[in-house]
Design a protein around this nucleic acid. Sequence first.
DNA 1: CATAAAGCTATAGTATTACTATCGTTATTA
DNA 2: TAATAACGATAGTAATACTATAGCTTTATG
Lengths: 226, 226
Amino acid sequence: MRNLLANIKIKVDEKVYLKNPDTSEKGRHIVEQSILLIDELGLESFTFKKLAEKIGTTEATIYRYFESKHMLLSYLISWYWSWLEYRLVFATNNIRSAEERLKIAIGILSGKVELDMNFAHVDEVALQKIVVAESAKVYLTKEVDDNNREGFFYSYKRFCKRVADIVREINPAYKFPASLVSTVAETAHYQKFFSLHLPSLTNISDNKESQLVEFLTEMVFKTIGK
Amino acid sequence: MRNLLANIKIKVDEKVYLKNPDTSEKGRHIVEQSILLIDELGLESFTFKKLAEKIGTTEATIYRYFESKHMLLSYLISWYWSWLEYRLVFATNNIRSAEERLKIAIGILSGKVELDMNFAHVDEVALQKIVVAESAKVYLTKEVDDNNREGFFYSYKRFCKRVADIVREINPAYKFPASLVSTVAETAHYQKFFSLHLPSLTNISDNKESQLVEFLTEMVFKTIGK
DNA sequence: CATAAAGCTATAGTATTACTATCGTTATTA
DNA sequence: TAATAACGATAGTAATACTATAGCTTTATG
């Protein structure tokens, strides 16, 4: 698997970077270290200056790849969703049963990170923590409509559409497939967050991913009536 | 109703302000205008300086009420959840059927703002838009555990507990009442947001609140098995 | 192999933000 | 009337999120 994936690149939409970081050593280094630093400091305390120091370069260099901290975060999150999509396609390939495919999708959304499916310069576990804690900030801004037009949310929307299509396959009469899928995606994130930080808002214990899968699977299948 | 409410104050936990803005004209003015300005500019572009200019005072005065912009936002959101709780208690009073009470709770969470239940210095419609677009930022920070200990999320947790208790009443065997309720609360917000800004992620049309209620009601009742 | 172009480093500078501090004036209350 | 709380005016600071520019390397191309 590792060998196979070594030749695969996760494609991220052009609008979320100025210069593709995947085309140079420096660029990959920026991505790699930004994931670790955002995870460590949180988005608010993370700055390009600190990142530049960490990787032994200057702010100017980073600005050549990403227009702003917001754009860098968008890049990371787009990368994440493209990666999930790739894993979804891979994991559901040749599986006939739509129910089974939906279960796989829920598992992936709930955050089972398989260690054999990783990329050299990306710490997927840290990246997932960033997605859980920071991704809402990418769209909860006054610039959301501009960013949407520019394609910042393409990967996320594509992933959701794929899963919604499975829901439609199972029950074509169900009226809210897109809403249900985006609900599962968002819920997976903040239920994880709540289990760590606001436990009274959830029944999922810290690190009990199976409970999250059970909660979501039950909710989805009962809702679509299967 | 208006007369009755004129004598009722929404109580907000002490830790989310330095000086209770509800005890002075200036304080109420700060709250009133901050709601309008955050709604207009978004949290990122909102500053105490701009707010001070708008209400004809100085930053120093605002800092006497709220330690920071983050604390002011926490105050507004706490106020919102206390207000929702008040409305929930009022609307479900004397209703025997737990199913009926749960439906009312979903309606309130979905954002039916009743105009006869308002408070002079609070524009509840603008406040709800703030809650939809900004409330996740209150807890998605590295300081969440400290803030939680200080009681920043009391109102939200209390509201959710109340609704979760209704779920337990309907089906004591259901394993995830707290998760389901926080899911409904969060879902109500971003499905609204998606319908306005990322419509491909939802099946709810802009301004069709009834669709949101239908989506959530169906999901909840099928999930808890009623 | 020369040369241009691309990419990177280093440095400097700016407007704004999110505060903190101080002090004199005004309003309230005892 | 005296005390005290609240407010306004002004000043200042460290950090942030950039922008600009100039010179130096590395890489690609002819």
